[in-house]
Every structure is written in structure tokens, then in C-alpha cells.
Write a protein that binds this DNA or RNA. Structure first.
Lengths: 354, 354
DNA sequence: TTGTATGCGTTATCAA
DNA sequence: TTGATAACGCATACAA
């Protein structure tokens, strides 16, 4: 792997100055003959511009970072899938950070913004701490936060409306006649966990249903732990007739446990997931799920960032993506979905609006 | 967003030279008093090293690129999930490229290696053209290819063994008494498509089964098109009793179509997928699937690249990851899996070895 | 139209 | 132990 040619190498070979080489390479007005000589030399040498040197000079890297909690979480991947092509189309490379939901890692990412290896950052933090806010205020490059930040934070912000999302699901279950509706939530010290918990309580109140602590279980956002939480809930409230799960992975865990317990879905227990990931459509019975618009949020975030990178200064903007209930067999199928062929097809595609 | 402080700013403030500042920042031997002054100034100014300038000087970016065909494909995401932490632990950032299976884009990525914005590249090309090989030979940074390259190509290479993988699946189906085993494949001009097609034919021959063109359908690697291919196959061979699908998405499409056609799985038709993605475990009936070790291949590729980045020169290495058949309900469940609760659980976790 | 010289922010060499 | 200075590869103001 020999050292690559630089504009100096080309200049020598073409018998011109490096300034002329640079001009030709950048398409600035130059005499035809010089252009020819430079292009020929560049070609023969297999010259490729050094991106690092360009960046140092231009103060732009044409890179953007996307920081999320977990590369394994389909909700983040849905964002990624939308972010990637938007950035690519605009000529930006994507640097991926997975913070494993470790706050210190998120702070690290914000700190590293100062190193100027990217022109901007899209971040989807699980929790927003005071330190986050401090660093955001001091950030030396544009940042877009996916998730909710406190009022008045001067940062571009794309948020989901999980409150309305939970409401859609609970109303749906209520309309189906369910009255003992459980909640299987993630940790309350996460932004989504807290929001979903509060929204659940509020929705019940508005519907005139009692709030029963035994109907609420907390696990984490994964399948196995979600299953355990459901087992516990079943133990305390054997006649629960519906489960609102804080994400699809938890809901899959719920399906596992309900099946093992001999409960029919949705006959005995209706199940709603959240995030409407690929898994929802693949599972059986197909999972009704509240989409919080991960894909749309990713796209919106990418566009906000690009606008900021290209347009320059403007007031921070807040974009809220409305949730959407996608009804499938786990709530709207035949009483024992396990007995019916084709139920998933019938239900799939029906979508309730906000 | 004011201009950030540089070592010059610090030097002025601390009343020392930039050389001293650099020394302190890099922990080189320096007088205590100087260290103190520099650190104080750096602290007050909120100094952060400029990564671009460092890279220009050091000729290392501490970035590695991963180029794959499709951010939406779970097999690549499985690789990504393993690659990311390995690189992160070694202090490398991950730059993500999605080429949308466009060959020109892959060539672009190889070309852009010359820009030196990354120290190395992991690439998983769908097809390896002559141009790929040319550019690999001329690459100015280490590359690891996930996928098969021609014998003698001087490049680190991690390959799956889809031939053995297909063989495992066909043998399994044969052992279950299936004799009319169909193949739902992806395009034959892709490396995996060609390999799987050939392996299927070979496996049948070895088992003494006739090769029937009507039993082989070609679509692409996605769910809807896979379903269409299965519908066509059903039309031609109504009594097909097993389907080998070239990936899990195709297999999900197969489940859709079989269910709609009133076929029982695995009673009437046993179905095997490939790649063993998350979807396989989530689907119903849970999908038997041949894991080609996407995760392991990703990990191996990252380790090969790191070794090359850190260790330096050595002969190119070829790592072959063995396939593994994961048996679930879609082949080993009760005749009509749709009628049985808990079948997925019973089958899950049973794994046949190579 | 072209070349010289300077700076982008670091690191590293060489004298002092 | 420290400071002046030269790269790293490129872009550009200015002079020729």
C-alpha cells in the first residue's frame, strides 16, 4: 500500500504549481492546456482527494452522527433506515453510535462533537439529564434530539406523542369491551416509560375505569423480562382481559407467556404492542401495535438537521409526529386466534387514525 | 456557536508555546507548573482536540466503514450489531454505507477509500464483479470482504457456507419424510442466490431425489415477492410437501401464502427459512431456519480488520463460519401447527449441529 | 492565467 | 524543560 499521490505529486508530474492543480480539480477557470495536463497526470497517478485535508481547510466533514441507545432495537433501526438515505442523498456520511443506554456514553458523544469529526448530530437519548441540557447548550455543532426535551430548550426536537398513542390503544381496547386492562411498562426513569405510565393512568381515568396497581407491572424493554412481568401480572389478576405493552418486544413476551398459560389471544386477553416494528407483522397472532412513527421521526430529524446544516441560523423547531394504531389479530381477531387460518391477513392493513 | 479554542488559544492564555500545550495534552514529560497552567487554561476554555487536524497529522482517522447492501435486511443488521461493539471497544467509530445493492455504489465506496476518511473497510457485496477485484487489489486501506471472493484474491475474507447450510435443511426435511421439496430462491446473479441454487440441486442428487424445475421458483429476497413465487410454485406442484426458502423474509411470504391457501404448516408443507433472523422466532408457526452465522461473520470480520489495523502486514486470511440448523415449529411442530398452543415453545431452542 | 505564500489545528523535530 | 518551526494535504488571497 504505497503512499497515495497528493496535489504536489501531480503538480510535479504536470509541470505546474499546486495552485493550478487545485484549481483544475475544483473546476475553476483555467487554460485548456493546463486542465489537460493536470487531468492526465491525476489519471495516471490514480489521484483521489484527501478528505481529511479538505475537511481541515473547509471546516466541514460531510459526516453526520446518529446516536441511539441500542443497535438491536427495531425502533431505532426504523429511524436509521430513514435517516440513512436522506443524508446520503445530501452527500453526508453517517457515523453510527450505540450508547447501550449508558448515560455517560451519551454525554461522551455530545462531548466528542467538539472534536469536529462530524458536522452535526442526531441523538435519541433514553433519558435527558441536566448534563445533557448543559452540553446541548454548549454544543459546537447542530444537534437534533429525537425524544422530548424540557420546554424552552433551544434545540431542534422531534417528538413522538406516546400519550395520545397509549390513549388510542386503551380506547380501542375499551371499545372492544375490555375493562381490566393491564399495563406492562419499561423502567419509569426513562422518558418513554414515564410518559406511557402517566398516559395509561390518565386514559383509564377519562374512561371512568379504576386504577389498579396490580394491573401495572414494570420490567425492561425486552422480550424475556416483559414475559416475566406479564407472568407476575397474571398471577395477581388472573382475569385480566387486555394488555397494553410499552413496546413490541414486551408484547411478544406477553404472547409467549399467555400461550404457555393457556390463555387465548384475543379471546381471553387482547394484546397491544407499541412501535409497530417488523416483528408485529411477523408474530402470531399478528400484533396490534401503536406506531409512534419511528420512521417518520427519523426522516424528520434528518431533514431538520440538513436544513440547519445548509440553511444556517433559524429558531429551533419542534416537530411532533402523531401516533397511529395498527389493528391486527391480537385484538381484533377471532376469539381464539390460534384456531383461525387467515385471521392475520384479514386484520392486517386496517389502520385506525389519530 | 463561537469558534472553538485551539492549542494557540491555550498557549496564549497560559503564556507558553503551542509545543508545550501539545506536550501536556499528550502526557509527555513536562514541568509540573507548566502542566498546571496549561490544564487550567484548557479547562477554562472548554478545549476539545480537533479530530480532523489530528488525523491529517497522524494519518489515522480512527474510523472504519461498514458497507452493506441494505440497512433494512436483518442479516446485515445482525452483522452490524456485532461489528459495532468490537470497533467501539477498540476506539474506532463506525461509518455506515448502504448501497441498496447497486454495484456502482459499492464501487464508489471502494473508490472513496482513497479519500482516507476511514482507516479500513468491511464490505458485504451482493455480487463481486471484476471491477470489485481490481479496486480491491488497488485499495489503499485494509478491506475485509464478507462473502465469497474468487480463489487467490488477496484480501481478508469471511464466508458463510450456504452450501452446507442448504444441505442441512434438505437433509432435515428428507429425514422428516418429505420428498417433494421446493426451493424459493433469490436472483441467480447474486452470490447467495447462485450458491443456494446449486447446493439445492446437489443435495437432491445426493439423496437420490429427482430435480424438478417446477419445484424451483425465483423471486427476490423480500416477503411479498417470495410469497408470489410460492403461489406460483403451489400452482405448478399442488402436492409440494416442503419449501426451502433462500431467506427468512421469503419464508414469511411462504407462510402467508400457504395459510391463505389453506395449507397446514408443517402438516401439509414444512417450511425452512435462512439467516435465522429475529423474525424467525417471532413468526407463527415459529420458523425453522438455517443460520449462516451473520452475527459470527460480522464479529470475525471486525476482528480481522482490527488485527490488520493494529498488527500490520500478514498473509490474507479466510474465515469460514459453519452454518447451523435451528429447528422450530414450521418443520417439527404438530401436523397443523395452527391448532396447537405452545408448539413454538417446545420446538424453540432445539438446534441441530453441522 | 498562473505561481507564491499562508493558514486550517496538530504533532514532532531540533536547538536552545 | 522549552520554544521556534516544519510538516500533514489542501484551498485561496494576492501578486505577478
Amino acid at each position: 500500500m504505497a503512499d497515495g499521490p497528493t496535489i504536489n505529486t501531480i503538480a510535479e508530474r504536470a509541470g505546474v504549481s499546486i495552485a493550478s492543480v487545485s484549481r483544475v480539480l475544483n473546476g475553476l477557470p483555467t487554460r485548456q492546456e493546463t486542465v489537460r495536463k493536470v487531468m492526465a497526470a491525476a489519471d495516471e497517478l490514480g489521484y483521489v482527494r484527501n478528505a481529511v485535508a479538505r475537511s481541515l481547510k473547509s471546516r466541514r466533514t460531510h459526516q453526520v452522527a446518529f446516536a441511539m441507545a441500542d443497535v438491536g432495537n427495531p425502533a431505532y433501526l426504523a429511524m436509521l433506515r430513514e435517516i440513512q438515505p436522506v443524508l446520503k442523498a445530501a452527500g453526508y456520511r453517517l457515523v453510527l453510535h450505540s450508547t447501550d443506554a449508558v448515560v455517560a456514553d451519551e454525554i461522551d458523544v455530545l462531548h466528542s462533537l467538539g472534536e469536529r469529526y462530524v458536522d452535526g448530530l442526531i441523538m435519541s437519548p433514553l433519558r435527558v439529564t441536566g448534563q445533557h441540557l448543559e452540553m446541548l447548550a454548549a454544543a459546537r455543532a447542530p444537534v437534533v434530539i429525537i425524544g422530548s426535551v424540557p420546554e424552552g430548550t433551544r434545540v431542534d426536537n422531534v417528538r413522538a406523542d406516546s400519550r395520545t398513542g397509549v390513549r388510542l390503544a386503551i380506547d380501542h381496547l375499551y371499545a372492544l369491551g375490555r375493562r381490566r386492562i393491564g399495563l406492562v411498562n419499561g423502567p419509569l426513569d426513562t422518558v418513554p416509560g414515564a410518559a406511557r405510565g402517566a398516559a395509561y393512568r390518565e386514559a383509564l381515568t377519562d374512561l371512568g375505569l379504576p386504577y389498579d396497581e396490580d394491573l401495572v407491572r414494570i420490567g425492561d424493554f425486552y422480550r424475556a423480562e416483559g414475559g416475566r412481568a406479564v407472568a407476575e401480572l397474571l398471577d395477581r389478576v388472573p382475569d385480566v382481559d387486555a394488555l397494553m405493552c410499552a413496546n413490541d418486544l414486551i408484547a411478544l413476551g406477553a404472547l409467549d407467556v399467555l400461550r404457555a398459560a393457556g390463555k387465548r389471544v384475543p379471546g381471553d386477553v387482547a394484546v397491544v404492542g407499541m412501535d409497530d416494528t417488523d416483528l408485529a407483522a411477523a408474530s402470531w397472532p399478528a400484533l396490534s401495535s401503536v406506531s409512534l412513527g419511528s420512521a417518520e421521526r427519523g426522516k424528520a430529524a434528518a431533514e431538520l438537521l440538513l436544513d440547519r446544516l445548509q440553511g444556517g441560523d433559524r429558531e429551533p423547531r419542534v416537530v411532533t409526529v402523531p401516533p397511529r394504531l395498527v389493528v391486527r389479530a391480537s385484538t381484533a381477531g377471532p376469539p381464539d386466534a390460534a384456531a383461525g387460518h387467515g385471521s392475520a391477513e384479514r386484520a392486517e392493513g386496517r389502520e385506525g387514525g389519530a
